[in-house]
Amino acid sequence: MSLQLLVYHNNSAVFFPLFVHGVELNLQTGGTLQELLCDQLAIAPRILEDRLQTIMLNGKAVDDPGNIIVQPNDTLALSAAMPGLAGAIMRKKGRYAVLRSQINLSGNCREPQDSPIMKNRITIKLFNLITRELGPQLLDRGVFVKTANLQEMFQKRCLSIKKDCSQVLLNKKRIVLKKFGFKQIMEKIKKQEYIFLQVKT
Protein backbone atom coordinates (compact mmCIF):
# COMPACT_ATOMS: atom_id res chain seq x y z
CA MET A 1 0.00 0.00 0.00
CA SER A 2 1.33 3.43 -0.84
CA LEU A 3 0.59 7.00 0.22
CA GLN A 4 1.92 9.83 -1.90
CA LEU A 5 1.70 13.44 -0.83
CA LEU A 6 2.57 16.60 -2.68
CA VAL A 7 3.39 19.45 -0.30
CA TYR A 8 3.85 23.17 -0.87
CA HIS A 9 7.02 25.21 -0.49
CA ASN A 10 9.50 22.36 0.04
CA ASN A 11 7.78 21.86 3.35
CA SER A 12 8.25 18.23 4.22
CA ALA A 13 9.64 18.98 7.70
CA VAL A 14 6.46 17.88 9.38
CA PHE A 15 7.38 14.30 8.44
CA PHE A 16 10.87 14.44 9.95
CA PRO A 17 9.86 12.82 13.28
CA LEU A 18 9.41 9.58 11.33
CA PHE A 19 13.16 9.42 10.85
CA VAL A 20 13.86 9.29 14.59
CA HIS A 21 11.71 6.15 14.77
CA GLY A 22 13.41 4.84 11.65
CA VAL A 23 12.20 4.34 8.08
CA GLU A 24 12.95 1.45 5.77
CA LEU A 25 14.27 1.39 2.23
CA ASN A 26 14.96 -1.34 -0.27
CA LEU A 27 18.67 -1.04 -0.92
CA GLN A 28 21.40 -3.22 -2.28
CA THR A 29 23.25 -5.05 0.46
CA GLY A 30 26.55 -6.84 0.31
CA GLY A 31 28.46 -3.71 -0.62
CA THR A 32 30.25 -1.30 1.65
CA LEU A 33 28.47 1.22 3.79
CA GLN A 34 30.27 4.00 1.96
CA GLU A 35 28.88 2.73 -1.34
CA LEU A 36 25.41 2.55 0.10
CA LEU A 37 25.60 6.10 1.41
CA CYS A 38 27.26 7.72 -1.58
CA ASP A 39 26.06 5.65 -4.52
CA GLN A 40 22.63 4.45 -3.49
CA LEU A 41 21.51 7.30 -1.25
CA ALA A 42 23.37 9.91 -3.32
CA ILE A 43 25.03 11.49 -0.31
CA ALA A 44 27.87 13.71 -1.49
CA PRO A 45 31.31 12.60 -0.23
CA ARG A 46 31.72 16.05 1.35
CA ILE A 47 28.54 15.54 3.40
CA LEU A 48 29.76 12.10 4.43
CA GLU A 49 33.10 13.51 5.50
CA ASP A 50 32.01 16.75 7.14
CA ARG A 51 28.41 16.51 8.23
CA LEU A 52 27.83 12.85 9.08
CA GLN A 53 29.88 12.93 12.23
CA THR A 54 28.34 9.87 13.85
CA ILE A 55 27.42 6.72 12.00
CA MET A 56 26.07 3.64 13.72
CA LEU A 57 25.30 0.29 12.20
CA ASN A 58 23.15 -1.97 14.34
CA GLY A 59 23.96 0.20 17.33
CA LYS A 60 27.72 0.01 16.86
CA ALA A 61 29.83 3.00 16.02
CA VAL A 62 31.42 3.09 12.58
CA ASP A 63 34.71 4.88 11.99
CA ASP A 64 35.41 3.77 8.43
CA PRO A 65 32.29 3.24 6.28
CA GLY A 66 34.49 1.99 3.45
CA ASN A 67 35.44 -1.01 5.56
CA ILE A 68 31.98 -2.14 6.59
CA ILE A 69 29.71 -4.44 4.59
CA VAL A 70 25.99 -3.81 4.82
CA GLN A 71 23.88 -6.90 5.46
CA PRO A 72 20.15 -7.48 4.97
CA ASN A 73 17.97 -6.03 7.75
CA ASP A 74 20.74 -3.82 9.09
CA THR A 75 19.84 -0.64 10.93
CA LEU A 76 21.79 2.46 10.03
CA ALA A 77 21.74 5.63 12.15
CA LEU A 78 23.18 8.96 11.01
CA SER A 79 23.82 12.05 13.07
CA ALA A 80 25.51 15.41 12.82
CA ALA A 81 28.09 16.43 15.42
CA MET A 82 26.80 16.26 18.97
CA PRO A 83 27.82 18.13 22.11
CA GLY A 84 29.94 17.13 25.02
CA LEU A 85 32.15 14.21 25.75
CA ALA A 86 29.52 11.72 24.64
CA GLY A 87 29.26 13.54 21.34
CA ALA A 88 33.01 13.48 20.91
CA ILE A 89 33.20 9.81 21.81
CA MET A 90 30.57 8.82 19.28
CA ARG A 91 32.19 10.81 16.53
CA LYS A 92 33.63 8.80 13.65
CA LYS A 93 37.42 8.66 13.55
CA GLY A 94 37.44 10.86 16.64
CA ARG A 95 40.34 10.94 19.01
CA TYR A 96 38.05 9.66 21.77
CA ALA A 97 36.85 6.59 19.86
CA VAL A 98 38.73 4.35 22.27
CA LEU A 99 36.34 5.37 25.02
CA ARG A 100 33.62 3.39 23.22
CA SER A 101 35.77 0.39 22.29
CA GLN A 102 33.08 -2.01 23.52
CA ILE A 103 30.66 -0.84 20.87
CA ASN A 104 32.97 -0.14 17.94
CA LEU A 105 32.29 -1.76 14.59
CA SER A 106 35.83 -1.84 13.36
CA GLY A 107 35.42 -3.80 10.14
CA ASN A 108 33.33 -6.68 8.87
CA CYS A 109 34.60 -6.86 5.29
CA ARG A 110 33.94 -10.20 3.70
CA GLU A 111 34.62 -11.70 0.35
CA PRO A 112 32.00 -10.69 -2.21
CA GLN A 113 30.70 -14.24 -2.57
CA ASP A 114 29.82 -14.27 1.12
CA SER A 115 27.58 -11.27 0.66
CA PRO A 116 25.91 -11.34 -2.73
CA ILE A 117 24.64 -8.02 -4.00
CA MET A 118 20.86 -7.94 -3.74
CA LYS A 119 18.09 -5.58 -2.68
CA ASN A 120 17.03 -5.88 0.89
CA ARG A 121 15.21 -3.88 3.50
CA ILE A 122 17.48 -1.54 5.47
CA THR A 123 16.28 0.61 8.35
CA ILE A 124 17.56 4.16 8.37
CA LYS A 125 17.36 6.53 11.32
CA LEU A 126 18.23 10.18 10.96
CA PHE A 127 18.92 12.40 13.94
CA ASN A 128 19.15 16.13 14.59
CA LEU A 129 20.43 18.37 11.77
CA ILE A 130 20.99 15.43 9.43
CA THR A 131 17.24 14.97 9.22
CA ARG A 132 16.92 18.39 7.64
CA GLU A 133 19.71 17.68 5.22
CA LEU A 134 18.85 14.17 4.08
CA GLY A 135 15.19 13.85 5.06
CA PRO A 136 13.65 15.64 2.06
CA GLN A 137 15.50 13.54 -0.50
CA LEU A 138 14.58 10.29 1.21
CA LEU A 139 10.95 11.34 1.43
CA ASP A 140 11.03 12.31 -2.21
CA ARG A 141 12.40 8.90 -3.10
CA GLY A 142 9.87 7.15 -0.88
CA VAL A 143 10.30 5.16 2.33
CA PHE A 144 8.51 2.38 4.15
CA VAL A 145 7.19 3.53 7.51
CA LYS A 146 5.48 1.67 10.29
CA THR A 147 1.79 2.42 10.04
CA ALA A 148 1.61 2.96 13.79
CA ASN A 149 4.23 5.72 13.55
CA LEU A 150 2.43 7.34 10.65
CA GLN A 151 -0.84 7.14 12.51
CA GLU A 152 0.66 8.83 15.54
CA MET A 153 2.10 11.54 13.32
CA PHE A 154 -1.22 12.21 11.60
CA GLN A 155 -2.94 12.45 14.96
CA LYS A 156 -0.43 14.98 16.28
CA ARG A 157 0.06 17.04 13.17
CA CYS A 158 -3.14 16.61 11.20
CA LEU A 159 -3.79 20.33 10.72
CA SER A 160 -0.27 21.12 9.70
CA ILE A 161 -0.12 18.30 7.17
CA LYS A 162 -3.50 19.22 5.71
CA LYS A 163 -2.43 22.83 5.37
CA ASP A 164 0.75 21.94 3.54
CA CYS A 165 -0.66 19.25 1.27
CA SER A 166 -1.78 20.07 -2.24
CA GLN A 167 -2.37 16.53 -3.39
CA VAL A 168 -2.81 13.11 -1.78
CA LEU A 169 -2.69 9.78 -3.57
CA LEU A 170 -3.61 6.53 -1.83
CA ASN A 171 -2.57 3.55 -3.90
CA LYS A 172 -2.11 6.03 -6.75
CA LYS A 173 -5.74 7.21 -6.51
CA ARG A 174 -6.28 10.87 -5.77
CA ILE A 175 -7.96 11.68 -2.46
CA VAL A 176 -9.80 14.93 -1.81
CA LEU A 177 -8.81 15.82 1.72
CA LYS A 178 -11.86 17.90 2.56
CA LYS A 179 -14.10 14.93 1.97
CA PHE A 180 -11.69 12.20 2.77
CA GLY A 181 -9.41 13.23 5.65
CA PHE A 182 -6.53 11.47 7.31
CA LYS A 183 -8.83 9.59 9.65
CA GLN A 184 -10.34 7.77 6.73
CA ILE A 185 -6.91 7.15 5.22
CA MET A 186 -5.69 5.66 8.47
CA GLU A 187 -8.79 3.53 8.64
CA LYS A 188 -7.91 2.11 5.23
CA ILE A 189 -4.31 1.33 6.03
CA LYS A 190 -4.54 0.33 9.67
CA LYS A 191 -4.23 -3.39 9.00
CA GLN A 192 -0.93 -2.91 7.19
CA GLU A 193 2.21 -3.09 9.31
CA TYR A 194 4.08 -0.86 6.87
CA ILE A 195 3.10 1.65 4.26
CA PHE A 196 5.17 3.13 1.47
CA LEU A 197 5.24 6.90 1.98
CA GLN A 198 6.41 9.35 -0.61
CA VAL A 199 6.41 13.10 -0.05
CA LYS A 200 7.19 15.31 -3.01
CA THR A 201 7.53 19.04 -2.92
Binding site: V20, M56, S79, A81, F127, L129
Partner: peptide, 18 residues
Protein backbone atom coordinates in the same frame (compact mmCIF):
# COMPACT_ATOMS: atom_id res chain seq x y z
CA UNK B 1 23.60 24.78 15.12
CA UNK B 2 22.97 21.59 17.09
CA UNK B 3 22.76 22.96 20.62
CA UNK B 4 20.69 26.04 19.76
CA UNK B 5 18.24 23.95 17.75
CA UNK B 6 17.78 20.90 19.92
CA UNK B 7 19.48 21.61 23.25
CA UNK B 8 21.52 19.02 25.11
CA UNK B 9 18.74 16.48 24.60
CA UNK B 10 20.02 16.14 21.04
CA UNK B 11 22.01 13.23 22.49
CA UNK B 12 19.05 10.98 23.29
CA UNK B 13 18.62 9.45 19.84
CA UNK B 14 22.22 8.45 19.28
CA UNK B 15 23.00 7.38 22.85
CA UNK B 16 19.91 5.19 22.75
CA UNK B 17 20.93 3.82 19.37
CA UNK B 18 24.35 3.02 20.81
Amino acid sequence: EGLPTFGTNVLTGVINEA
